[in-house]
Nucleic acid binder design. Sequence first.
DNA 1: TACTTCCACAACCTTCCGTTGTGTCTGGTC
DNA 2: GACCAGACACAACGGAAGGTTGTGGAAGTA
Lengths: 309, 309
Amino acid sequence: MDVEALRTFVTVAEVGQFQAAADELGVSQQAVSKRIAALERHIEVPLLVRTSRGSRLSLDGQVFLPHAKKVLAAVAQAEQAVRPGSRPLRVDVLNRRIAPAQAVYRFYRSHPEVGLDAVTLSTENAAQAAQAVLEGTVDASFRALPADQVPAGISGERLLDAPLELLVGPGHPLADAPWVRPADLAGHRIWIPGIQPGTEWAAFYRALSDAFGLSIDALGPNFGDEALMDALADSASLATLVGSGDRYLWTQTHDLRRIPLRDPTPVYPHVLLFRSGDQHPVLAALREHLRTTGPRAPHDVWAPSWVDR
Amino acid sequence: MDVEALRTFVTVAEVGQFQAAADELGVSQQAVSKRIAALERHIEVPLLVRTSRGSRLSLDGQVFLPHAKKVLAAVAQAEQAVRPGSRPLRVDVLNRRIAPAQAVYRFYRSHPEVGLDAVTLSTENAAQAAQAVLEGTVDASFRALPADQVPAGISGERLLDAPLELLVGPGHPLADAPWVRPADLAGHRIWIPGIQPGTEWAAFYRALSDAFGLSIDALGPNFGDEALMDALADSASLATLVGSGDRYLWTQTHDLRRIPLRDPTPVYPHVLLFRSGDQHPVLAALREHLRTTGPRAPHDVWAPSWVDR
DNA sequence: TACTTCCACAACCTTCCGTTGTGTCTGGTC
DNA sequence: GACCAGACACAACGGAAGGTTGTGGAAGTA
């Protein structure tokens, strides 16, 4: 049972003759003859009555026609169901740094008609996220993944740079600076708890430390954000780094200062991972949107050398 | 979009791995790979996630699976709809001689569970009836058609012989005979109105006339059965011929005699016409039923030489 | 009778499909 | 840590199926 044969049968039934159906289908009249003959041979019942002035449906053909149409409709519906864009785009927005979530939300606000689901994968590892994209769990994921580590079948585009800011308590020596250079942080203790080894976060802060001679304790024990904020507020030497777009609830409950970093501005580079060749129109629109309106730091920025640019 | 590819996809989705699906479908694992790959290429979306321990559905695959199943169900339903026996057998039973209608009715009484429609085609011509069978307007038709005139694609089986009886008024010389020979009718006027020239009826009565030297007025004007009955009842020389199974309403309202014909018994031979190779089980059952229980005259009968058998 | 229309048949060719053989990757095991 | 087994993909080959052109026959029409 060939779908094309069914389509041919329906066409012949509607136009009433083989030649016209052949023209409509873009094949030769003989091909139509063959398809109909094969279909009739398959179901062992004559469907069309051939006359000298065309063809019309036999009794069985009249019975069969609506069923054939139903099959074709089901086929079209199946194709429609997986057509790019008929399903909301599932984007993995990180929960740790919320810049991607904000950017995706802004995109959604400016294109409210598109289908878009923002989810958060439980994977902390960029490679696992890439795998999830490859497997179709999500359609795209924001990660900081070196371009050469992007697995086959996955494309990556660096679309979002999240500038880092210093977060210190009021007693910190840099608490009143309008901005600081990364190199100024040398000698200060920087604590960024909750980073798991083997993740791109760890690699990022290691690269940052190496680049500016900092002492960042990114792999230490995590006592929770509340404990970190308490420690910052009380300490004259402890600092942490947050994304400039991040909004932490405890910045309102603690007297902390957010100080921009410049010269250069360290940015956490988000690479949007997606399946190579994915035709989803929302994905294309999201990429275009981020390329033009994405909040990338305007002037000299620093990013790990292992991230594509 | 190939139906076999859909079937393969559904099988893989259900059993979870290519090899097992290949076994179930009776093809090689590589063929399954190709089919799935072709399907994914066609809809431009990955449906299955290949792992080292089998395959599972991707997000799009989960969306696609029910649609694929729906297509397969529609295909199965379409095939079922035209399967021989899923539709009642349409049999053309003649209205002029009701022996076929009686025989079909008896068959239906003994097989009440079968689907059977008895209709009466408006064609008076056997060739037209054969054409109607060929075109599927009906599945079978009782006609007296020479075997060599059966068109291509149509098979004929002589299954029903309707013996003729003489119908005369009480004043007819043969009115009190227990039976008569056809040759005895020579010299008597026999009127069989309503026969159209060019029909098998006309040919039958012409053959009957020639065989026994009768004078049958079969092509005369038709004033209606009532007029014929009146004429028979009043006439001392007029007769007509009826099928022995026929029940005419006016045999109860007129004092007429039905006299069997013997030595030999002229029979009107009904050939059941049907499409060659028709697999309809009711057709086969009807043929078998008529072969064994059909009311065929037991001993020497006469039929036109141009009819088979 | 000649002509047109419409479908079927035949021959040829291309394309696609299925098979066998082999490769690669992953996960478990000794 | 290297090996092995399972699972899917790739390559090459053979055959079948479907498409095309060319032709024929049947029925209606001028």
